[in-house]
Design a protein around this nucleic acid. Structure first.
Lengths: 340, 340
DNA sequence: ACGTTTCCAGCAATCGTTTGTTCTATTTAA
DNA sequence: TTAAATAGAACAAACGATTGCTGGAAACGT
């Protein structure tokens, strides 16, 4: 049978509160050395382990945090998850993983269910169809950190990467190679990160006086097929782009496929820069010039921030942390033909 | 404040047990229609949600399961995890994800910590340095299902894929293309799946009278670099293989890199078959002929099996489920040059 | 009219831990 | 010597939900 404080108390001939104090009590009350030694030895002998469920119930602290992300089988979030898991393990927290599939209803359901399970804190990549449940978290004073996305008009903890700057820089980089017509393949436009990348792109288009034909911005979806079709659409324009920025991961494969199927070559005929985090990118043909997110660091910062809030006595002021992205120069960008 | 049964009881002028029976009680005892209606309406009005922590404590059922895998950022396990998460969500279970990093100590620590949190059941890709903690689970009658790996001498629930057959078939396939010298790049030899693949490979080598030089079996590790080095080792042999089987995922990129760096071409100079599950494999150059695991199905079966055990009144007999792998014929296999 | 059954709801214990309060000896101070 | 201080440990309530048991009243049968 499983050993409880009571079992130890009976064996030691003391009261269970005394046992509790010895085994757990912050030294708020004294216990004589011999009693302490006795209890400790009996606990050892019976190999007592505290019932964490009972403790959690009593203390209203489960030492559990939940991670809400769109999809754990998406490498981007899997790596964030991994980084968070490592730390929660080290900090003695249990990690619950929830996939929202970018559906607000699922996010809401999860949040409600997890709240009634008294989860201590949340790390959330919010769906952002609504912000009500986030406001509820604030009102209920439940500690949480947003990751990858935030609400620009809500003062919450958040760890995001600087997609706008990254996109601006990628565009600037291409314009330095004399590209004037740059296509931008979005993925899903309604996502926070994509919106920011678009803003950065458009700012650069203005600043460097590039072709700002709205038809240069295409795509809605992250699959290979989506990338393929978006690229076809770009290539079918009267003045097709000489360079493409891919705002997605898997997406990019479809782009390359479409380019190759037209018997065009990267970067000779068309240049390509991707927001692409896959480890195999450097081994593609050609190795792709990409922007990558320091996912490990994002997870790290998010957990650390959450932990601070969990351990704080009083409510802390929310913090926004922006992580710099990295630009990896490889071999998918060259000057457009006309300049060669 | 958060609403409890007591609050409702007071408002309704009844005892909390009555409230509990109305809101939750399997109709083991009758409650008059008017009382029921009153309680229901008050519960609705106060928007009562049960404290699942208290219930879990009382009932010793947390409605939580844990998934122990080597690494969630490994796409193989991420996809299994995803499939399990979908179902646990649908079944009303919360999923805790734990990474063992193939370290027995971590697996043990997790198992202990989770046991004291009264997790209902486990799905485990065991590290297999030891089987003691699995035996403990059996003895403690804690429901669990092994996944991807099992102990051949332990009667437990398990969902695995048929690596031996798959490997045998891949070898047979290559031998049909007249390959006589086939290299096998392992990944980590001590893993259950790898051992099985080796067995299948060696059986086929015997049966089809291929070169059974033990130097044809190389590699120890799953990184790109590991694959690169293993391939170099194979190519440095006096009689290098005309075909390679890759028993890994990322690994395979290293193999291709090593081949291309020698200015050899796949499949003209060397054929390649991989146990490679990445979605982008069809878009590689050349598209790789692979064996894939029905990961979604594995996760599905594993959860279903676990659920059966969780819901069963008495202890069920353990079941082993073996899932067929899939062979995808693409363009990385041809006859060796000598026959062309 | 009295005994038996049925219906409905309250009572109380319980799960294991934590922690403020109380109690009893013993020590210390005056 | 007596009052006050202190150490050490027991007491008891509490967290919220569940459930076997008890009991009163109404309904039913003979």
């Amino acid at each position: 049978m499983v050993v409880t404080l009571k079992d130890i108390a009976i064996r030691a001939g003391v009261h269970v509160s005394t046992v509790s104090r010895v085994l757990r009590g912050k030294e708020t009350q004294q216990v004589s050395p011999q009693t302490r030694k006795l209890i400790l030895s009996i606990a050892e002998e019976l190999s007592y382990t505290p019932n964490l469920l009972a403790r959690a119930f009593r203390l209203k602290k489960t030492h559990t945090i939940a991670l809400l992300i769109p999809d754990i089988s998406n490498a981007f979030f899997a790596r964030i998850a991994r980084s968070i898991e490592i730390q929660s393990y080290n900090a003695g927290y249990t990690l619950v993983v929830c996939n929202t599939d970018e559906e607000q209803a699922k996010e809401n359901q999860y949040l409600n269910s997890l709240k009634s399970r008294s989860i201590d804190g949340f790390i959330i990549a919010p769906v952002q169809d609504s912000k009500q449940q986030i406001i509820d978290l604030i009102n209920n004073k439940i500690p949480f950190v947003l990751i990858d996305r935030r609400f620009d008009d809500l003062e919450t903890n958040a760890v995001i990467s600087d997609n706008e700057k990254a996109s601006f820089y990628a565009t600037e980089y291409l314009s330095r190679y004399q590209h004037k017509r740059i296509g931008f393949i979005c993925g899903r436009k309604r996502l926070y990160t994509i919106k920011k990348r678009l803003v950065g792109f458009q700012k650069a288009v203005k600043q460097f006086q590039l072709d700002d034909n709205p038809e240069m911005i295409v795509g809605d979806g992250f699959t290979i097929e989506d990338g393929f079709r978006a690229t076809q659409k770009l290539m079918a324009l009267e003045h097709p782009p000489t360079a493409i920025i891919s705002s997605g991961n898997v997406l990019t494969i479809g782009i390359m496929k479409a380019i190759h199927e037209r018997d065009l070559s990267i970067p000779r005929d068309i240049s390509l820069v991707g927001f692409t985090d896959s480890f195999c990118v450097p081994y593609w043909n050609p190795p792709l010039t990409t922007i990558s997110h320091p996912l490990h660091q994002m997870g790290h910062e998010a957990f650390e921030l959450l932990l601070k809030h969990l351990q704080a006595k009083e409510t802390l002021a929310p913090r926004q942390i922006t992580i710099k992205t990295k630009f990896h120069e490889r071999h998918s960008v060259d000057q457009p033909k006309i300049y060669n």
